[in-house]
Amino acid sequence: MEVDKEDKPVDRVIGEDGKERLYTEDIRKGVLPSRQKGRGHDDSEERDTDSRYAGSDGVFQVLDKQEVDITPGEPIKSIEGWIVIIDNIHEEAQESDLRDLFAEYGPIRNIHLNYDRRTGFSKGYALIEYEKHQEAEEAVKQSGKIQLAGKDLTVNWTFVGGKPTSATGVIHFRTNRSINRERGGDQNGGRSRRRESGGGNNNRRRSDNRG
């Protein structure tokens, strides 16, 4: 019986049904977060994550199928233009302040300066849409060089090429966690074991986070 329990987590890194079972690189390697909190971890509670994404409900639409051919981390085009994200915005900044600064690189097609729902002040980030790649790129090049109310604004691409995935549905973590628990908190044993035996599967899912 003991052997069964130990072997299961490895099988479930990528389940027999092809679904991802774990998230984050560390967890795939078998390194579990040391602290956990919340009722959602409780196995007695019925969850229906599988039913949420059964059949065609599990098919997520990407904007452009070619997207997957783009090198991970390279910027991708949105449906009508190129979106940049600006961060480190002063909380009292107004949309018009950003328009003044960023219209210099091209006509602004869209701007979202979102507010903190609690304070009503700017949340500190904004999304700006340019029509042309070149315009957005010019803005990105100015990252750290533009100031607003004494703060240096960072400008980055918002959407990038990602790794293709065939997995559907949300990723289950709890199954693995509960097994780990059953083993009576054998954290270290579990870690090293899963690391070595999970190696083959990990390579399939390794993704590059640079971007």
């Binding site: 409900d57 981390g73 991708i76 994200i85 961060d87 980030y125 980055n156 959407f159 990038v160 971007g211």
Partner: peptide
């Protein structure tokens, strides 16, 4: 209709979210 959308966001977006 059921909507299912997927897109990869940059590290800068994750940083905004993590800060939040």
């Amino acid at each position: 209709q059921i909507i299912r959308k997927e897109v990869t966001v940059s590290k800068a977006v994750l940083e905004v979210l993590i800060k939040m």
